[in-house]
Write a protein that binds this DNA or RNA. Structure first.
Length: 270
DNA sequence: CTGAAGACCTGCCTGC
DNA sequence: TGCAGGCAGGTCTTCA
């Protein structure tokens, strides 16, 4: 479900429901997510001061702790009335002051959460090796070019490496490479600086447009209120194998790279 | 070291 | 209808 635009959409959706509210109780229906859930008793009575995002991690800040949550492949949050019936695949419910609750739903249970110190969380293994934010100033053509030197890896695989740049998952890697006209299997060290400049612009544009559209809904992604995101309507290549390229009508192809499906136009991308 | 593949887990879709 | 197989937004671990 979530790449950076979806996580950012969730963050924005949760903020008005959580900020300023305190946690009254936490119910774990299934604590065995990817990693065991942390003991959240220490948050009882504590007020959520803000929600931020680093890479695909949501960060709920409290006075003395940071609750970090990764949605994995299929995780999502829903805000609902505190007395609502348990949902299918709802693993955690956080009851909030004011009568609402925050439900975590995750069919595949690849998501995970942790309670980190408010100071020094950047040193935690989940964050220490992360590359720059794709929408931040330090992600530019010069940086990406430097990271491509000496790398024979396919550019699409490199783009999805969180130590290079965070937040670019399978969908947006495909879409960004299409927009930049770069073949996903091209070796990273065989792409000119000028073309990497275009790729950086494409990544920023695609992610920015997806955030503006409220994320992409494929199967089960939904906003915290249950409504879908709309960026999937704008996919140029993702999920369009054997369909006509919207620019040149050539059939879109699918290939597998590092175990992940890649979609590209063999005419538009080189 | 690099890069590719497997593992984690469940649901859904396709084809026989 | 039933069932096997393939596929799915991410990331960590293992292996060559």
């Amino acid at each position: 479900m979530p790449e950076l635009p979806e996580v950012e959409t969730v963050r924005r959706g949760l903020a008005p429901h959580l900020i300023g509210r305190s946690i009254e109780s936490v119910t774990c229906y299934r604590p065995d997510l990817r990693y065991p859930l942390p003991d959240m008793d220490v948050l009882y009575g504590k007020t959520c001061r803000g929600i931020s995002r680093r890479a695909k991690y949501l960060q709920f800040s409290f006075d003395h702790a940071l609750l970090v949550w990764h949605l994995g492949m299929s995780g999502c949050f829903r805000v609902q009335h505190g007395n609502a019936a348990k949902l299918r695949h709802e693993h955690v419910r956080i009851s909030l002051s004011g009568g609402e609750c925050l439900s975590y739903i995750d069919p595949r249970r690849f998501g995970y959460a942790g309670l980190l110190p408010i100071d020094g969380w950047q040193q935690h293994p989940w964050f220490a090796a992360l590359g720059p934010e794709p929408l931040g100033d330090s992600f530019d053509g010069e940086y990406l070019f430097s990271r491509c030197q000496g790398r024979k890896i396919a550019i699409k695989t490199l783009l999805m490496d969180a130590s290079v740049v965070v937040g670019v998952g399978n969908i947006y890697a495909c879409e960004s490479l299409f927009r930049a006209g770069i073949h996903p299997a091209r070796a990273a060290n065989r792409i000119s600086r000028q073309r990497l400049d275009l790729l950086v612009i494409a990544v920023r544009e695609v992610l920015g447009e997806a955030i503006a559209a409220g994320g992409s809904t494929i199967n089960d992604f939904a906003h915290v209120d249950g409504n879908p995101g709309y960026f999937a309507h704008n996919f140029q290549v993702y999920g369009r194998a054997s369909k006509a390229c919207l620019h040149c009508t050539t059939r879109i192809r699918r290939l597998v790279q590092s175990g992940r499906s890649t979609f590209y136009c063999p005419h538009c991308q080189h």
